[in-house]
Design a binder for these strands. Sequence first.
DNA 1: TATTGTTATACTCTATAACTATA
DNA 2: TATAGTTATAGAGTATAACAATA
Lengths: 151, 151
Amino acid sequence: MSKKAGTTNLNVDDSYLQSLYGYRLRRASLLFSTSYFEAAGELGIRPVGFSVLSLIYHNPKITARAICKTLALQAPNLVKLIAEFDSRGLVERKPLPEDARAFGLTLTARGKAILKAVESHVHDHQDTVLQPLSLKEQTQLHALLGKLLST
Amino acid sequence: MSKKAGTTNLNVDDSYLQSLYGYRLRRASLLFSTSYFEAAGELGIRPVGFSVLSLIYHNPKITARAICKTLALQAPNLVKLIAEFDSRGLVERKPLPEDARAFGLTLTARGKAILKAVESHVHDHQDTVLQPLSLKEQTQLHALLGKLLST
DNA sequence: TATTGTTATACTCTATAACTATA
DNA sequence: TATAGTTATAGAGTATAACAATA
């Protein structure tokens, strides 16, 4: 009952790494992204793309620059993503009357549909990953992360 | 007092993304990795490399396979990292008597010295990043992440 | 047969420099 | 002079397939 799988016991001491917040956060983050790909991988929307579609949905006519600032993305990387979504018919780019340099981004009906599909997968698998925590603990974790990110 | 920097207010609604645990965890993880590079970047040891060196330090004669299992790395990627550390004189690879296929990894004096240097940077900047949280909240966060990762 | 380590390779992710057109 | 978007490119990060040597 103390060994895993059908292989020799590794017995690795990782207690120091486990003491580090950055290490635990990275492993926890990986837990969610792995489950994300299992859940929504075949829809062809990766995590950052999901965040981008969600921002466009909740902020019609948003500019690429605003998305970059909000998600801490580099502009050149977003350009490629938007171009991909455009060619897949998920987003529309319309020139802004108030600034001829910029474009306002909105989701097409197809973009909204695929976003909602991804969202439902995300919620299902979020619950699965969070199962080791009670509801109260989940709320605590969410609040602590929010406070950590608040500055 | 409500605007940031010297630019127009973006006013982006990201409340939905903020409701997602995976999103907050990823952003929080990024907070630590960014501060890691600011602190230890010039030492030439990246986050995964730091984890690898630390595991070797606390587990002398550890095998590459054990490291891969513990850190969820793919073997081919670790091979390159070990080769780099070997050429920099940070690790030693000695054949294991009990298994002629495997090598036992240990840190050289230079490897230990650089590991300790990175550790001290990590601790300093961990404290900085954690400042928005009280000590009690930090402990709570650490415990919740541990429980989340426990399965 | 399965496992350890390796090579080759490819795809994704992220970052920087330099350009254009507008403000 | 600064900003929005773009192009090209390079470096990290991560993944799979296939192999040799050994268990």
